[in-house]
Design a protein around this nucleic acid. Structure first.
Lengths: 174, 174
DNA sequence: GTCTATACAAAGATAGAC
DNA sequence: GTCTATCTTTGTATAGAC
């Protein structure tokens, strides 16, 4: 289930810029955002660092594109499912599959003006559809995010949250 | 309600090191961790940056002390309350009162070997007491953390989570 | 415990040629 | 679109005197 054409953040990029973006994802997942440098990204592509500035004006512009791409893909990943339990399961899985991208897209302030208008809402709308109520949707999303991010950061004493904890969460919202 | 003496991370610091730590909190809340530098911290104290290394071996050592201090203080803040609703309320309030310290203490990996043994568990134990079950406690903590961190980061469309969303969360766990 | 001076490293970004 | 060369800034940390 793909996102509407007008929300697709990649649609205005040149082919080469998309290649750069793809390489950035690889480096991001390998190293994390803080240690992704314009140099390491250039190395991944086999070019010199200054060449990147022909495709993205700054590292921050690249970051914005990655976040927009994440909103699109995460939204697409959870959209096909039905019901709270399946939604939470899909949300957890897609985050676990792209941990650094998830972290980048969901942590810290968000520069909404730099995103395609409507993309953020579209990305979160599956929670509204699954719960049928805005506040319930927000609470479920926040709870799922809390579980995911604590699990990614290894914050649960056992190392990762037991299935029983996830089950507990789903039960409360069903 | 204070934490047990043997868990207090400050107990081994010199008086001057505590002053440095206090100044670090001020700078942290003002600027955030990423832009807290040894120079800005020294400026706050009115001394030269290299002088700080007489009190803390590295910036990372300072970070560890701040995190330990946060676990202690957050644990103390929520301990006196009784019941899920009051716990969640207290948790939200203490985080909102020290947003940067909360972020530092709860985001990213945690170097558990550098903390006083037992402090992390002690800090989280109010959730166990309020719910009476380990998985339920974990789920409630994760949900509360998700709400708090998304609120601190301005991730809810309205800017902060509506009271109705917090109420929704509490209702599910009561 | 504080200072000055300085080393050392890393990162973002620009200029201008090809 | 890519290169080389370079600028500029910033930050952690050490050495050694006072």
């Amino acid at each position: 289930m793909t996102c509407p054409e007008e929300l697709d953040p990649v649609r205005l990029l040149t082919p080469r810029a998309r290649e750069v973006l793809d390489a950035a994802r690889v480096v991001l997942e390998r190293d994390g955002w803080d240690t992704l440098t314009m140099r390491s990204l250039a190395d991944e592509l086999g070019i010199a660092a200054p060449s990147l500035y022909k495709h993205f004006a700054s590292k921050d512009a690249l970051r914005t594109q990655l976040i927009a791409l994440a909103l699109k893909e995460f939204g697409e990943a959870v959209r096909p499912v039905t019901g709270v339990a399946a939604l939470v399961r899909a949300y957890r899985d897609v985050a676990a599959g792209h941990p650094q991208l998830y972290r980048l897209a969901t942590s810290g302030r968000l520069d909404r003006d730099a995103l395609p208008p409507g993309l953020e809402d579209w990305s979160g709308s599956p929670f509204l559809e699954a719960t049928g109520d805005p506040h319930r949707a927000q609470a479920l999303w926040a709870a799922a995010h809390g579980m995911v991010i604590l699990e990614l950061d290894g914050r649960f004493p056992t190392g990762s949250a037991p299935e029983a904890t996830w089950d507990e969460l789903v039960t409360h919202f069903r």
